[in-house]
């Protein structure tokens, strides 16, 4: 029985004979798993799989890194961060380089761990680099709930949190269907996807196992052949219609929408989150009066086009030459999940 549905799904994928289509994954973990599993090999020639802007590391602009480096070097702040951000190049240096110079950069598993560290080290000033989409943001908010409850005053966030809905709209023309990021939808629910269908934007909410990805691609191709805008939740064991109301409430309690820059894509109005005025005691930008950073980026880098599926990583003149995972120039090479890094590492 189960073996059969896997075969059916693979048959749907292999036998796709519709028009040329572009499917965009907008989740770094999808990019990663699709490469790890060799999913591209299964897709027929008429299907382009584009790695869109799904990794918060990739879309975080250089001036954000500059701010974090400034905190570590000029203010002696202990910067707590997810591992992915450590090698991201800023205008002058990465956090790894700031650490080598003596800056305190601590890799944490979660914002909660960063808050614990602050609580245990009252003599240090601790800032958590709060990046991420709707999946990650509630955790950052929970760390503030805890900081305020436990009176942890040496803890704050440097926010670069982002939300996906406006990004789908901005990328509407770049893909025929999105592989929606399952864990974002676990928080937001699926209402937003239904809204997008009305605007002519199609997609399938996908999980992350081999079965789930194969299912999602099969559904996507079957629906694309019908030619109508569509939405399917192919990850119902985790993603519910209503998402996580508590997660959304927490985000709304602590943060509000703002315009924000996506590395490579520019400013997308209303796609960012910043701390509300009432929470400014936890806003590192206010607390440490961080000056405005003017980021410099490499002119030859084509990350922006890669993120929009307008070119492949290998089309960029820097790819594999001036820009490699060990010495990244562009955002897409920085994170293991970045499209360029994944292409480079998996030799595609």
């Amino acid at each position: 029985m189960s073996e059969k549905s896997a075969e059916k799904a693979l048959r749907i994928i292999k036998n796709y004979d519709g028009p040329r289509v572009r499917i965009m994954e907008v989740c770094g973990t999808h990019t990663h798993e699709n490469f790890r599993l060799g999913v591209r090999q299964l897709l027929p020639e008429a299907v382009d799989l584009i790695s869109g802007p799904g990794c918060p590391v990739c879309v975080t602009p250089a001036d954000y890194i500059d701010e974090a480096v400034w905190l570590a070097r000029e203010k002696g702040v202990t910067v707590c961060t997810f591992g992915d951000l450590v090698r991201v190049p800023g205008s002058r240096m990465s956090l790894a380089e700031a650490r080598a110079e003596g800056g305190k950069v601590r890799i944490v598993y979660s914002p909660d761990d960063a808050c614990s560290y602050a609580k245990d080290h009252p003599e240090e000033e601790v800032v958590f680099l709060s990046v991420g989409f709707e999946t990650t943001t509630p955790g950052a908010c929970l760390s503030l709930v805890r900081a305020s409850r436990d009176g942890v005053t040496n803890y704050s966030l440097l926010t670069a949190n982002k939300t996906m809905p406006q990004a789908y709209r901005a990328l509407k023309g770049s893909a025929d269907a999105f592989l929606y990021p399952g864990h974002v939808n676990a928080i937001t629910g699926t209402g937003v996807c239904r809204e997008l269908v009305k605007e002519g934007i199609s997609g399938v909410v996908a999980g992350f196992t081999a079965n789930e990805l194969v299912t999602a691609f099969a559904l996507c191709l079957a629906m694309l052949q019908k030619g109508e805008p569509f939405f399917v939740n192919a990850y119902p064991r985790v993603v519910r219609e209503e998402g996580s109301p508590e997660g959304m409430r927490l985000i709304d309690q602590w943060m509000e929408a703002c315009d924000t820059e996506w590395r490579g894509l520019g400013v997308i109005p209303g796609s960012g989150l910043k701390l509300r005025k009432e929470a400014e005691a936890y806003d590192a930008r206010i607390k440490y009066e961080i000056p405005r950073m003017e980021a410099r980026t490499h002119t030859a880098c084509r990350c922006g086009e890669v993120l929009q599926g307008r070119c492949r990583p290998s089309d960029c003149p820097l790819f594999g030459k001036g820009c490699t995972p060990l010495h990244p120039v562009g955002a897409c090479m920085v994170s293991g999940e970045g499209a360029c890094s994944a292409y480079y590492q998996y030799g595609m």
Binding site: T135, H183, A218, R237
Partner: peptide
């Protein structure tokens, strides 16, 4: 489902059954 120190969702069932249901519905 755990993400960065937070349980973000309850998991109901496994990916195999989910696949069976979805693919059966499709065909």
């Amino acid at each position: 489902m755990v993400h960065a120190g937070v349980a973000i969702a309850r998991i109901r069932g496994n990916d195999q059954d989910q696949m069976d249901d979805l693919i059966d519905d499709l065909l």
